[in-house]
């Protein structure tokens, strides 16, 4: 197993200096050179809103916008973020107010345990930036890299559709409800 334990090249333990704009604020920091953007956000900047479920690009929980593009922060070396713009879930709020998409996720049951929610919101934000009025199919395709184990996705689609309406200046949709059948329990 000796081969796997890396013989360190000179300087590999030195911290890297990184200037990166996160949620509109210029940040300047020193980080371990092996860290990904995910680790720097969570551990060096304290922005734990970005989650992780696999760290291998297989679940989508760590999605952020990097220079406006949806990317998985677990597979971006921090060193490659020098001079770039990062938007995380912490950057979605408008002052103390929730963004229309956040409102919609909260009202439509788009978030249960909340662990995929950050990534879902980033993916939905990215989608609506490109397609303000997406079809259900387009929403499904845009969110196809985001695993959710709680919702079965349906209320997430409904949240995206409702949030999209608000962003277009229309009224939000009411939450979709089940059809209620009354009085069945006594046979």
């Amino acid at each position: 197993m000796g081969g796997s334990l890396v013989t360190l090249p000179a300087g590999a333990r030195d911290k890297i200096r990184l200037a990166v704009t996160v949620n509109g604020e210029a940040r300047d920091l020193l980080a371990d050179p092996y860290k990904t953007l995910l680790e720097v956000l969570r551990e060096d900047l304290g922005l734990t809103g970005t989650k992780h479920g696999c760290e291998l690009g297989e679940c989508g929980a760590c999605a952020v916008l990097l220079d406006g593009e949806l990317q998985l922060s677990c597979l971006v070396p921090a060193v490659e973020c020098e001079g770039r713009q990062v938007t995380t879930v912490e950057g979605l709020k408008i002052g103390p107010e929730l963004s229309p998409l956040q409102e919609a996720f909260a009202d439509h049951g788009g978030s249960q345990c909340g662990y995929c929610t950050s990534g879902m919101l980033m993916a939905a934000t990215w989608l609506l930036g490109r397609k303000p009025d997406p079809t259900r199919q387009e929403i499904q395709e845009a969110l196809a890299g985001q695993l959710c184990r709680c919702t079965g996705y349906q209320q997430i689609y409904e949240a995206v559709e409702s949030g999209a309406r608000v962003l277009r200046g229309e009224k939000p949709l009411p939450p979709t409800l089940s059809t209620v059948v009354e009085g069945g329990g006594h046979g």
Partner: peptide
């Protein structure tokens, strides 16, 4: 684990009898 494109539409009914 199924992803968005693997999940069909689900229509829900609730039987309410306290």
């Amino acid at each position: 684990s199924p992803l968005t494109l693997d999940m069909p539409e689900v229509e829900c009914f609730l039987v309410e009898d306290p």
